[in-house]
Every structure is written in C-alpha cells, then in structure tokens.
C-alpha cells in the first residue's frame, strides 16, 4: 500500500471546496424553500368586467355600482369617464364617497381624496389609482383591473386611463 503524502496546501483547498459546496447546497435549499411560499398558480377571480353603457352615468357623479363587487368607482365628468380603484393608497382600506363633501374619505386612517382621486388630507402618500377603461364592441364599458395608472408617474395622461365621450 502506498501512502500518498497530503500536503497542507492540498488539505486546505479540499476543506475549502467542501465547505463551499456545502454552503452552496444549503443556500440553494433555502432559496427553494423560500420559493415554495410563492405559489405558481393563483385561483383568483377575473380582473376585468363590463360596466354597462356610458349613458347610465350622470355627469359629475361618482357611481357606487361596482364598488362592492369589483372595488371600482366609475366617475363621469363632462369630458368622459374614468375608473378609480376603491383601494386607499395608504394601507388598502376601502374609502367612502361622501357626496356632501365631494370627497373620498378612508375610515382607517383618515386619508381624503378629491373627486379626481388626488390625495389632499390624511396619511395617503399618493393619489388613488385608475384602471384601464375602454369601450367594448357591444358599446359597453370594459374595465381592466390588471392595468393601472398612477398619477404621480404621469400615467393619467395615457389615453387608456380615460374614456373620452
């Protein structure tokens, strides 16, 4: 039997390699475990809905029709329509439309938003989001909640965020 002499240098490099591999495996396992917490398939309801005909909405009013089912207010101005998200930009409560005071007021922490969705009081850091709104082939309004427009990013100028009539 021949005894190979293992030098210190070789020994150290093997140890180093071993530990590196071990830690890499551990890191990989940890990443996979973390990834396990993010499901691949979501069973969530459809994110777009039909909201009737534009004539149904009165100028200068906030429609509460779709709030409870879809979390959307449809607002009709003289120029047209936009779909405001009924989710407070502060921590996600549902604000109430106070028609007397012409503002959306969030009951959780008191944020207030104007008719346009711009925040003006309370802790909300930014305006309400708007959703993509368009006219379907059947003449009905179609609101697509997967596409949102944020005022502070200048996205409200996007034609898809507003339905001109």
């Amino acid at each position: 039997m021949s005894k190979e002499k293992v030098t210190r240098r070789v020994f150290v490099s093997w140890i180093f390699l071993g530990w590196t591999l071990f830690l890499a495996c551990l890191g990989g396992l940890g990443t996979m475990l973390l990834r396990y917490l993010f499901p691949n398939v979501l069973f969530e309801p459809s994110q777009s809905f039909k909201a009737g005909y534009p004539e149904n909405y009165a100028v200068g009013e906030v429609s509460l029709l779709w709030k409870s089912k879809h979390g959307v207010w449809i607002v009709r101005t003289a120029e047209g329509l936009y779909a405001l998200s009924a989710v407070c930009t502060h921590l996600g409560c549902t604000p109430n439309w106070l028609s007397g005071e012409k503002k959306f007021k969030c009951p959780c922490h008191g944020s207030g938003f104007r008719f346009s969705g711009i925040n003006f009081e309370g802790p909300a850091p930014r305006p309400l989001e708007r959703f993509k709104i368009l006219l379907g082939d059947d003449g009905q309004i179609l609101v697509d909640k997967t596409k949102k427009f944020q005022q502070e990013k200048g996205e409200w100028n996007d034609p898809a965020s507003f339905l001109a009539i």
């Binding site: 089912k69 409560c93 009951p107 959780c108």
Partner: peptide, 9 residues
C-alpha cells in the same frame, strides 16, 4: 366584506 371598511377600522 372587502367592499365596506368599518368606520373607524
């Protein structure tokens, strides 16, 4: 009910 936040929440 996600549509109505209690007031105050």
């Amino acid at each position: 009910n996600l549509a109505t936040s209690p007031n105050p929440a």
